[in-house]
């Protein structure tokens, strides 16, 4: 009877463990090792001026009108941005590609938005992934309580940790928040020997100036032995159509996408400091 009771609670708990996601991308090749499924969780405490996923910022499910043309006619349909899903249905979707993960050394990546924002849901789904022996990556901007990081840290195989701007004021200007907690959390992860790849989105005119790079070098200099790799992500303006679609302002309108080759100098600069550096994702 006691056993039955526990089972019931477990089932109830499972039913209620829901989270808001806005996309699931299979055959993701740039969000960690191997072939991966990337789950994008909705909601983000940062408001980066260059955000590629503007639809990820709000944590509520929004709607937009999708317009398509067919046979010379325009069709409008209301589409939801985001979906409220149970961890059960999500793990089922993720597990569909487990053969690809196994073959390629891939797995699942939780990105966003900021995945750490939905801690309980994230922790639950990660536990389910680990039960299926999947490789788990979290792609985070690092703005959360340290206790949150602590909760998932041991089950996460790799953190893709976004580092945008070292200068605190400048960070506030372009992301709306201070980087104080972000940097502390990164240090906490490194002290605890977590696997960390630093991802730096290189934004023309914002964080690619000499003083920005120097500060970044200074900040990273004593962390060399703890950091697995640095990834330099070239700026791309692919989000422009999204901003248009969601009718929100975009300050990078018309800014050209960066050619990955433009980042070679920067790459070599970090390499000279002893870091493993890649341009683009994995």
């Amino acid at each position: 009877m006691e056993f039955f009771h526990i089972e019931c609670i477990h089932v109830l708990f499972a039913i209620f463990m829901k989270g808001t996601i806005f996309d699931i991308k299979r055959f993701a090749l740039n969000d960690g090792p191997g072939i991966r499924t990337t789950v994008f969780l909705k909601g983000c405490p940062l408001k980066c001026a260059w955000c590629h996923n503007p639809e990820s910022i709000s944590s509520v499910i929004e709607e937009f009108i999708q317009v398509r043309e067919l046979d010379g006619q325009r069709f409008e349909s209301t589409q939801a941005i985001g979906e409220f899903v149970t961890s059960e249905s999500l793990i089922e979707e993720i597990a569909k590609d487990k053969e690809f993960f196994r073959q390629s050394g891939g797995g699942v990546t939780f990105s966003g938005g900021e995945p750490m924002l939905q801690l309980d849901f994230l922790s639950d789904i990660i536990t389910k992934c680990k039960a299926k022996k999947m490789h788990v990556v979290i792609d985070t901007a690092g703005l959360c309580k340290q206790s949150h990081i602590e909760k998932v840290m041991n089950q996460v195989d790799l953190f893709l940790y976004d580092l945008k701007i070292i200068d605190e004021e400048k960070h506030k200007t372009y992301t709306g928040v201070s980087n104080d907690v972000i940097l502390k959390n990164l240090e906490f992860l490194l002290q605890n020997n977590a696997n960390v790849i630093i991802r730096i989105p290189v934004i023309p005119g914002i964080n690619d100036q000499e003083q920005d790079i120097v500060k970044l070098e200074q900040y990273l200099s004593d962390k060399l032995e703890y950091i697995k790799e640095i990834h330099l992500l070239p700026f791309h303006n692919s989000a422009e159509s999204k901003y248009r679609r969601f009718n929100t302002g975009y300050s990078f309108k018309g800014v050209k996408s960066q050619d990955p080759r433009d980042l070679v100098n920067l790459k070599e600069r970090f390499e000279r400091k002893g870091f493993n550096v890649k341009i683009g994702g994995m």
């Binding site: 791309h236 159509s241 996408s257 050619d259």
Partner: peptide
């Protein structure tokens, strides 16, 4: 695109 992929239809 650059370091990531996307549906062609979704690009500007």
């Amino acid at each position: 695109v650059a370091g990531y992929s996307d549906y062609f239809n979704d690009l500007t």
